[in-house]
Design a protein around this nucleic acid. Structure first.
Lengths: 225, 225
DNA sequence: ACAAAAGTGTTTTGTTTACACCCATGA
DNA sequence: TCATGGGTGTAAACAAAACACTTTTGT
């Protein structure tokens, strides 16, 4: 049953925003892959796999993510190491889990097939292993971190309107925000700069386009980077 | 050089408050152990060691900590998994690092000897491996978390005065706090309850003793516990 | 002209900070 | 009675929330 060493794996919870096909409201979705062998054959699981001995942890997350889903994250951060004895049948597995944010329109173009699909975090089925707990924890981190850092930009393209940025916050925090107060909060944070361009075509006043100020880091990780 | 699997280790950054022998001011200290073999023989390192295959991660941190320093932490939380290729000479090592808080007077009683000592985080020497980076990151987490959670209690005994609790905050945040405003902040947080007892003996008005309200968790970890 | 969202102004409310001052004790 | 820290009161400064109102477009 037990062997000399635990197996090390790296997995990633990837978040993207998608419009609900019925209501049209943006909500948080994750890509999952189907398990093609036991244990939990047939169930959906987080993308990931064993750590190759010459790969850095973050690099392993990034490359495995690209191979299975074709996605390149705009934000990637270590979440937690899950290592409880018995969390996986068979040999002991310790999973170092990352969480990532990808641009909405890149997510729309991402690989989907028989063995890869997107699931809404509002109504997740039972996933393989302890992956429901992992997603719950990643969602909690996303929501708390959204309140005090600027990671929302990672869901958007290079330029965006304040309405789009507000939509991201509303999707993640699951409540409407006052447009006037939101505007002032963002403007006083000095993290965005107006490009001078406007979005025309909608049947209302054109919205100013902004660009994220790259001289400020998305999230303060202290001494790590 | 490279082998099939990475080695998994668990280490812990243990924080306690100690009075500076010269100034008398409380500052943050950590216990370290001397490396008795290569690599980095003779250098100070964080307590830790390889993960036994049947131990849970947190349990491994706790038991290794007890064996080497004799300490039982009042607070223990996972910090980060450090796994950069080349962070240790020889086989690939991935370290899952925890951070812990221990009561000040328990720390004073802790094992000290030829191979275990306490170091002030204000003036750390060069430690083994990447342990300086790890301690810096743990300190950053301690300081940021002190601002929005109630972990300060873990440095104190069951009952304490507000002056003692304030001293903990001042030691960690490295700046003086207004006693009047500190009192109100703590009282409005509803995390402490007065015991009804007072500390007499000092040459000033007796200070009220408080107890931490156990029904509120020290730190909100979301879906994990 | 009208709807609809962009964007501005203003008032209210609450929280943080600064600091003056009274209280209870030991020496 | 004096020094010392415990403990209370209060006003100013600042930040968050609520909401009325003006602007600019497409139809």
């Amino acid at each position: 049953m037990s062997q000399q060493q635990a197996v090390l794996a790296v997995s990633t919870v990837i978040f993207a925003l998608r419009s609900d096909p019925t209501t049209g409201i943006s909500t948080v979705w994750i890509p999952v892959v189907r398990r093609i062998r036991e244990p939990h054959e047939g169930r959906w699981a987080l993308p990931g796999g064993p750590l190759r001995v010459d790969d850095d942890l973050e690099e392993a997350a990034r490359s495995h993510l690209l191979e299975t889903t074709g996605l390149t994250p705009k934000y990637l951060e270590q979440l937690y190491a899950f290592g409880k004895v018995g969390r996986s049948p068979g040999p002991r597995v310790v999973s170092i889990v990352y969480w990532a944010l990808v641009e909405s329109d890149e997510a729309a173009r991402a690989t989907v097939g028989e063995n890869v699909t997107w699931l809404s975090t509002d109504e997740l089925p039972e996933l393989a292993f302890d992956h429901n707990l992992i997603v719950d924890y990643a969602l909690w981190r996303l929501r708390t971190k959204m309140e005090y850092s600027r990671i929302a930009h990672a869901f958007l393209g290079d330029t965006f309107t304040l309405a789009q940025l507000r939509e991201v916050h509303e999707a993640v925090r699951q409540k409407p925000l006052d447009p006037a107060n939101f505007r002032r909060t963002i403007e006083s944070s000095k993290t965005v700069v107006p490009t001078g361009e406007f979005v025309t075509g909608a049947r209302h006043r054109p919205a100013r386009l902004y660009r994220y100020d790259g001289s400020i880091d998305l999230a303060d990780s202290g001494p790590l980077q």
